[in-house]
Write a protein that binds this DNA or RNA. Structure first.
Length: 425
RNA sequence: GUGAACGUAGCUCAGUCGGUAGAGCACUGGAUUGUGGCUCCAGCGGUCGCGGGUUCAAAUCCCGUCGUUCACCCCA
């Protein structure tokens, strides 16, 4: 047992029975992205390490301690994708998409990799849906991004999600605010926890995140960014709010909302679900007007979000009991005698060729065992073949829901099953 | 990286005061020699995470270790 190989820590297998719900959620999400005009983008699962260290920011937890970084056989430093925005920005620049009509709008459904300690709703490999819209500073686009995410949650039936929004300012107004905040933190240093001392040094904004009661109390009287926004950021923020109202989206303004990536400017937002426990964030994002430039592209604004597929599924499983389930075969072909197993195989082949999900026994089960399989597997029909049926060119068709059965010419029975498969779709 | 709880059959778990293991579900067969779901009977299935210690005797007590889960941190 000691040498038993298991899935790596923080990873998991998605078994066949669990696929139905996932596929349904993905399909709902894809339809939302289509309606809002986003095109699918796929990028490699690993990138040059510099893309993330520069794009996401050296001071972030992701870059400092959570990346799966390795040296390839050519001596290059590579990193498994920990987030989606930087790779999307890289692709935008690499393919010269600034020459296309702006904005350029992408959506993705990608696995992400972060070397973290796993817990409920947090994995080392997890999936995210996301969108990124490049090339526009319009605040209406910020509101659209939030609208896309809200529509996604609504369409999959995720209730009890609360939206919080904030503004992080821009290159013009952030330095002045940061200086104010830093001065405040230094002044109250003795009342703050050691973590916050570290935050003061690395990223003062994150002191707002601290949950230590003493720090929370201190931060209540800290200068708020919303009071220091420059005129254009102030205007931008109010238009975002207006366009949220136009979509009837409810939200609360939260000046303490600070997100983990360094690239955010102006709008940031986050949806939380009450049923998720400690990892309550189900999705979030914001505007990143300096990111493209920071990875070597032309100055290009952008806005987007990421949302955790596992967290959506977890929240759904805790709040709904009517989720899609895996579908079994429509027809189960039963060989009544061992001598008719060849005929049964041929019939299953015919049904499958004609589009029917059909199954049969490969375990030499008894007649009763085969019927049991048919019933447990959720089949609607059992098609029974015995010596009598084979001799007569017939098959006994049994409706497993009603128990009704009758012997029919083989072509007629097959036609009924084929029709049922077509109408089931 | 820190803290806590938990590791017994494929799954969910029980196992008293230490006496080398049980149930339910699932799976296979039978009751019904050509008929599923319900019921009943039987069968299959475990080096009690791993290593060491105490003891005549350890799933049980002690130490270590690995893993899982939850929480902190941070995020999706």
């Amino acid at each position: 047992m000691a040498d038993k190989i298991t899935a790596p820590k923080g990873t998991y297998d998605i078994l066949p029975d669990e696929q139905a719900v996932r596929r349904w959620v993905v399909a709902r999400a894809e339809d939302v992205f289509r309606r809002y005009g986003y095109g699918r983008l796929d990028t490699p699962m690993f990138e040059e390490t510099a893309l993330f260290s520069r794009g996401v920011g050296e001071s972030t937890d992701i870059v400092r301690k959570e990346m799966y970084t390795f040296t390839d056989l050519g001596g290059r430093s590579m990193t498994l994708r920990p987030e989606g925005t930087a790779p999307a920005a890289r692709a935008y620049v690499e393919h010269g998409m600034h020459t296309l009509p702006q904005p350029v709008k992408f959506w993705y459904h990608w696995p992400m990799f972060r070397y973290e300690s796993p817990q409920s709703g947090r994995y080392r490999q997890h999936y995210q849906f996301g969108i990124e819209a490049f090339g526009s500073t319009s605040p209406a686009l910020d509101a659209e991004a939030i609208g896309v995410l809200e529509a996604l949650y609504r369409d999959v039936g995720l209730a009890h999600v609360d939206l919080r929004i904030n503004s992080m300012g821009c290159r013009q107004c952030r330095p002045a605010y940061s200086a104010q905040l830093h001065a405040f933190l230094t002044e109250h240093r003795s009342d703050l926890c050691s973590e916050c001392h570290e935050r003061t040094r690395l990223n003062p904004l994150r002191t707002f995140d601290c949950k230590v009661p003493g720090c929370v109390h201190v931060m209540d009287s800290a200068p708020r960014f919303t009071d220091y926004l420059c005129e254009s950021c102030e205007t931008h923020h109010s238009v975002v709010r207006d366009h949220l109202a136009l979509q009837s989206i409810e939200y609360t303004e939260d000046h303490r909302l600070v997100r983990g990536m360094d690239y955010y400017t102006r709008t940031t937002f986050e949806f939380q679900s009450a049923v998720l426990g400690a990892q309550s964030g189900v999705g979030g994002g914001g505007r990143y007007d300096d990111l493209v430039e920071s990875i070597g592209g032309p100055p290009t604004p952008g806005v987007g979000f990421g949302t955790g597929v596992e967290r959506i599924l977890l929240a759904l499983s805790r709040s709904r009991d009517d989720l899609p389930r895996a579908r079994g075969p429509l027809a189960y072909v039963v060989a009544i005698n061992d001598s008719t197993r060849r005929e049964a195989f041929a019939l299953v082949h015919e049904l499958r060729t004609r589009g029917v999900a059909a199954e049969l026994d490969y375990a030499s089960r008894s007649l009763k065992g085969q019927m049991k399989q048919a019933g447990r597997g959720g089949a609607r029909f059992a098609l029974l073949l015995g010596d009598d049926e084979v001799a007569a060119g017939e098959v006994t068709l049994k409706d497993l829901a009603t128990g009704e059965e009758r012997s029919l010419p083989r072509t007629e029975a097959a036609a009924i099953v084929v029709r049922a498969e077509v109408s089931a779709e």
